[in-house]
Amino acid sequence: MADTSLPANATEKRAARVRWLLLAPALLVLLFAASGPLLITLVYSMLTPGDYGGVIWQPSADAWFNVVLQRDIFDDTLSWSDAHLSIFWRSVKLSLMTTVGCIIFGFPTAYFIATRPKKQRDLWMLLIIIPFWTNILIRTFAVVELIRNEGTINTVLMWSGIIDAPIQMLFTEFSILVGMIYVYLPLMVLPLYASMERLDFSLVEAGYDLYATRMKVLRRIILPLVKPGVVAGSILVFVPSLGAYVTPRVMGGGNQLMIGNLIELQFGQGRNWPLGAALSITLLAIVMVALMVYVRTAGSEEPKHG
């Protein structure tokens, strides 16, 4: 129902207005849910902390300073902030180990499911997904129950006489790792399964036929072809692992902090919102750099499908 009586430029203006109106919901979401909060975080990171939390509107670079440096309380000399750096290092290390662990456990799982008859696959997938639907706290405490000193594993080991005293597994980096692998495993299995399901298994047979042993078929044929799934799964696992909060808190018992816990501390007991904000942005930067490095190295060998 274009109004032909209107001059051409008026019709154009109206079309432009309609276009903006249609774009509005997406723009609002981007503004209020993504870039807006990020911008606030960025601004807060450059302000002075208030005494009881919050911020005082007074520009300050202290927060950014404190991300990696610390000032000695006696002689004011600057030094690397060992506490923060070790937390960063632990976070990156545990996240990498979680990702690798998820690949190690997730790959055979996904392969197993993908090679079942079609009717059974959904059932197996359901078994993978059900824990995924369960609250993360419940899942984490389930692992706690297994590995705590009076837990299932220690009880069985002591009862069978293999050990005399319980093995301290809870509240260690190991326990965080176990918890995170368990919690994030479905995020690895799902994309891996999706790419394996599409795998043409006659290619695997062709590999065997051409004198490739099982290991070589895995390395030369299956892995390159399901690589998109491995890449996607790794990103899905690595990113949330790096910012993980609940699992390290419960499994680490408060003395094995990861970045997520450190950030939470600043907004809570620490009452240092600018530092928390600066740490959040740092986390974001670490994730972005890691992803860029990863995608670049993984993508360089990406097969060119014709």
């Binding site: 006659s202 290619l203 047979e205 062709a206 590999g207």
Partner: peptide, 12 residues
């Protein structure tokens, strides 16, 4: 050695 019905050439 086998020539497969679908050829099964390695796409990568």
């Amino acid at each position: 050695n086998t020539v497969f019905q679908s050829y099964a050439l390695f796409p990568h």
